[in-house]
Amino acid sequence: MTDMAASVARFTAMGTRVELHLFGCDDPAPLAAAKAAILSVEDALTIHHPSPATALNDALSTDGTATVEDRLLFAALLQVDALWRETGGLFDPSLGHWSALTIDRTNRRVSTARPLTLDFGGFGKGYALDHAVTALLAMGVGSALLSAGESSIAVLGPHPLGGGWPLAVPHPEDEGAWLVELELQDASLSISSTIGAGAAKPDRAAMIRPTDGAIVTTPATAVAAAATGAEAEALSTALLVADPAARERLRAAAPDRRFLFPHAAPVGAKRALEPTA
C-alpha cells in the first residue's frame, strides 16, 4: 500500500479551512511547501490585515499610482487582467472599475484613473491552490487533491487508483442530490453560489455584477472547471453574475466544464442544465 499512502494537512487560511491530500508521498516536505505557498499568497492578497494588497489599495483609493514590489501580488494583477478580458468584464475584483486600471508591466507600476479598491476574494483561493500545485509538482508529487473552503478544488495528476478524479457538486439545499458530476485530472474546480450555508454567513460580501453594479440574489450555483484555479474562480464568478446572453457566450466556449444551475431546476443531473436565471 506504499503507493497508496496519503499524507494530509488541514489548516485555516483565507478565512476558511484548507485541506491538502497527497497520495503516494510519505515525505512531509511537499505538504509543508504547499502550505507555505498558500500562506504566502494569503499574506500578499489579504485585505483583512496590512499586506501588499492593502498598501496598493491605499494608493488606488485616491486616484493614485503605485509600484508593486510583491511578486505574488503583481502576478495576480496580471492574471486578473487577462481574466477580466476573457470574461468580458464579468470577473472584476474592483467591482466594475478595472477598465480604469493601467498596468505597466515593465516598471511594475499600477495606476488608476478613478478611485478603486481590490478584493481578490475567491480568486485568491484559486490562485493560492495554483501556487500550491506548482510547489507540489516541483517536489515530485504525482497525485493530490487540494481544497480551499470546498468551493475551490484542485486535483494534481491522476486519482491514486488511476484515471481522473470523480467529483460531484452537491445541491446546496437538497442533501444527497448532486448538481453535476465531473471527472478531472490536472485541473481546478470552482463553485460559486448565492445560497447554501457559506452564502448565509452574516457579513459575506454580496455578489455584484460588475457591468452594471446590480446585486445578484437569484438562487443559483455556478460551477467552472479550468486548467488553473485562478481561471476557474473567475469563470464561476462570471457565470453567476452574467446576464443570460453573456452567460451563454461563456458556457458555449466550454459547455462540459462551465455550468449554471438555477435552483428552481431539477437536481441529480449528470449533465449541464440549461441556464434559465
Binding site: T12, G15, T16, R17, G122, K125, L145, S147, A148, G149, E150, S151, S152, I153, H159, L161, G162, G163, W165, P166, L167, A168, V169, P170, P172, W178, E181, L189, I191, S192, S193, T194, I195, G196, A197, G198, A199, K201, P202, D203, R204, T221, V223
Partner: peptide, 15 residues
C-alpha cells in the same frame, strides 16, 4: 474509487 461530493458556497468558520 468513489465520487467525491464536494463544493458549494465557501465554508466559513466565522459564526
Amino acid at each position: 474509487k468513489n465520487t467525491v461530493p464536494i463544493g458549494g458556497a465557501t465554508w466559513f468558520p466565522e459564526l
